[in-house]
């Protein structure tokens, strides 16, 4: 970065553009936040609400009283962590060999993986399989069937293919095997793509509800998105209010509108996953790889 001007006209122009863009992108987020704190009269009126007349936490009370939401939170976090870990491990294990152009039968194996991306038997055989494996109503059912993701494998493989072969070759000379090379050389060199895929996988596991819906029967193992889904698809509040009562709690729904509750649910459900990003972000900073290259 030596000798680069700290500031320029182009950059200034770009920054203004990004600021406008950020406002556009923040708008729905802000609107949802305001809605979640609005009183029902305001919530049920059309038109932009940029500031609530009064900040009312009722909707949050209602959602937090819905079923065992804290348990669902914990389950989702556990699922996201373990599921992401599994995906990363399997993705790396498959992507590294497939990145070797001289691997015999490489294309055949690639196609074996690709086919799985396009054909699936549908939910009934999936369910019977999970049932016969004895995974039904266990947490494994949420992370094992999705542990191998062909899309991620191809992305990572592609990234591996752009890594300079020279470093690998010299490690070979030093007597390292493929496994140590993967761990000691490829892994540190691939932090950005691993971070990206970890983020994708985490977002996937965070948002996934269908498997939870069909594989999990025990309420104590349910995930956050199941509750979100209940709220978003409920036609009116009375339906979810019933469900809240089933959960044995729930704030008074007297002063709430469905739109409040939905907004609050969305805010609650995206909170943690949105906060993950800044932590992953450091791997996207340009020049991060320079140290590892020399190391």
């Amino acid at each position: 970065m030596v000798g680069r001007k700290r500031f320029s006209f182009v950059e200034c122009f770009l920054m203004i553009g990004f600021i406008i863009f950020s406002i556009l992108v923040l708008y729905p987020f802000w609107q949802t936040l305001v809605l979640s704190f609005s009183d029902p009269n305001q919530a049920s009126s059309l038109g932009p609400n940029l500031w609530p007349e009064k900040w009312i936490p009722d909707a949050y009370q209602f959602v937090f009283g819905y079923g065992d939401i804290m348990k669902a939170y914990a389950n989702t976090i556990a699922r996201t962590l373990s599921g992401t870990f599994l995906i990363i491990v399997f993705t790396m294990l498959a992507a590294y060999p497939l990145s070797k152009k001289d691997l015999p039968y490489r294309n055949t194996i690639t196609i074996f993986f690709l086919i799985a991306m396009f054909f699936s038997g549908g939910i009934i055989p999936d369910y019977l399989l999970v049932k016969n494996l004895g995974l039904l109503d266990t947490r494994w059912a949420l992370i094992l069937p999705t542990a191998v993701n062909v899309f991620y494998i191809i992305i990572m493989r592609n990234y591996f293919m752009t890594i300079d072969k020279g470093i690998e070759e010299s490690a070979f000379m030093d007597g390292a095997n493929y496994f140590t090379i993967l761990i000691k050389i490829i892994l540190p060199l691939s932090k950005p793509v691993i971070a990206t895929i970890a983020l994708w996988a985490a977002v996937f596991h965070w948002n996934e509800w269908f498997h939870a819906l069909v594989y999990i029967q025990d309420d104590s193992k349910t995930v956050l998105q199941m509750i979100v889904r209940d709220m978003l698809t409920a036609m009116d509040l009375s339906q979810s209010a019933n469900a809240a009562a089933i959960g044995g709690g729930g704030g008074s729904s007297e002063n709430l509108m469905l739109s409040n509750v939905r907004a609050a649910t969305v805010m609650i459900s995206i909170g943690p996953i949105v906060l993950v990003y800044p932590f992953v972000q450091k791997y996207f900073i340009k020049g991060i790889m320079i140290g590892s290259l020399k190391g």
Binding site: S120, G121, P125, L129, L144, T146, A147
Partner: peptide, 11 residues
């Protein structure tokens, strides 16, 4: 992949 994608493919 074989277990979780190919086995149910008869669907």
């Amino acid at each position: 992949l074989f277990i979780f994608n190919y086995l149910p493919m008869y669907g």
